[in-house]
Write a protein that binds this DNA or RNA. Structure first.
Length: 212
DNA sequence: TGAGCGATTAAA
DNA sequence: TTAATCGCTCAT
C-alpha cells in the first residue's frame, strides 16, 4: 500500500503553514488513529508564549532540534501535550495538536478519579489527545517521519478557521492575540469555536512534495 | 534544595 | 469558578 507518512520536509517550514496543513492529517500509534482537527503554532523564541522563550532546557531540547520530531511535555502535572517540531534545525518552533476525531481504534481516556470514560469519539483538548495516544514524555524527541511508534499520515481539509491561541494569558498582548490557531471548519471537535473565524484564500501551499 | 507555576480538565 | 497535581525552571 502507498506509504502516506509525511516526510521530514513537510515539517521544515514556518510553523504557521505547518499548523494549517496538519489539519486533516492522521496521527497513528499502537492501533489508534486520530484525525487532526485543531492546531496551534508556536514560532521562534521571540514568541512570548513559546516554551523556548527562555532558551534551551532539558525539557524543550527536542523543540530546538531538527523538524519532524515530537516534543511532548507534561502540563499541570497530568496532561501529556503533543507538539510536532517545525522549521529549520535550531529555530525552536513547533505545532501543538489541540483536538482530534477518532478514526480507528479504541481510545480509552480515564477521568481524574480513575473512572473510565471509555471510547470517547471526540477529543477536544490537547490533554485528551495525548491520553488517547497513550503518550508520555518518553515519546519526546521521537522521529515522526520514520515508520513505527507515532506516525503522521497525509490528510487535508476543505475549510479552515483561524483565531487566537488558548491558555497563554501570561504572554505579550500581541502574541496573545496573534491568529496562530487553526481548526477544521467542518468538524465539531474544536475548542472555543466562537473565537475562530473563516480563513480566506486557503490554497494548497504544500511545498514538501519531492520532485520526481 | 525548594518555591512557584503552568500551551488543562472535570466537577461544582 | 475552582481544585487537582507534579515536572520543570529558576532562585536561593
Amino acid at each position: 500500500m502507498l506509504d502516506t507518512i509525511l516526510p521530514q520536509s513537510f515539517y521544515a517550514r514556518d510553523a504557521l503553514v505547518v499548523a494549517r496543513d496538519l489539519l486533516g492529517c492522521v496521527l497513528v500509534r499502537d492501533g489508534v488513529a486520530l484525525r487532526i482537527t485543531e492546531t496551534e503554532a508556536y514560532r521562534h523564541p521571540d514568541d512570548s508564549a513559546n516554551h523556548c522563550r527562555f532558551g534551551r532546557t532539558p525539557r524543550n531540547a527536542p523543540m530546538w532540534g531538527a523538524p519532524g520530531h515530537a516534543y511532548v511535555y507534561v502540563c499541570y502535572g497530568l496532561h501529556a501535550m503533543l507538539n510536532l517540531v517545525t522549521d529549520a534545525d535550531g529555530e525552536g518552533a513547533a505545532v501543538l495538536i489541540r483536538a482530534c476525531e477518532i478514526v480507528d481504534g479504541h481510545a480509552i481516556v480515564r477521568g481524574r478519579r480513575g473512572g473510565v470514560r471509555d471510547e470517547v469519539a471526540l477529543l477536544a483538548g490537547p490533554g485528551k489527545v495525548g491520553a488517547a495516544l497513550g503518550l508520555d514524555t518518553r515519546s519526546s524527541g521521537h522521529a515522526l517521519f520514520e515508520r513505527g511508534g507515532l506516525e503522521v499520515h497525509e490528510g487535508r481539509v476543505e475549510h479552515v478557521l483561524v483565531g487566537p491561541r488558548v491558555g497563554i494569558d501570561y504572554a505579550r498582548p500581541s502574541d496573545r492575540e496573534a491568529p496562530y490557531r487553526f481548526a477544521d471548519a467542518r468538524s465539531r471537535v474544536v475548542t472555543r469555536r466562537r473565537t475562530l473565524t473563516p480563513l480566506v484564500r486557503y490554497a494548497s501551499t504544500r511545498g514538501h512534495t519531492e520532485p520526481g
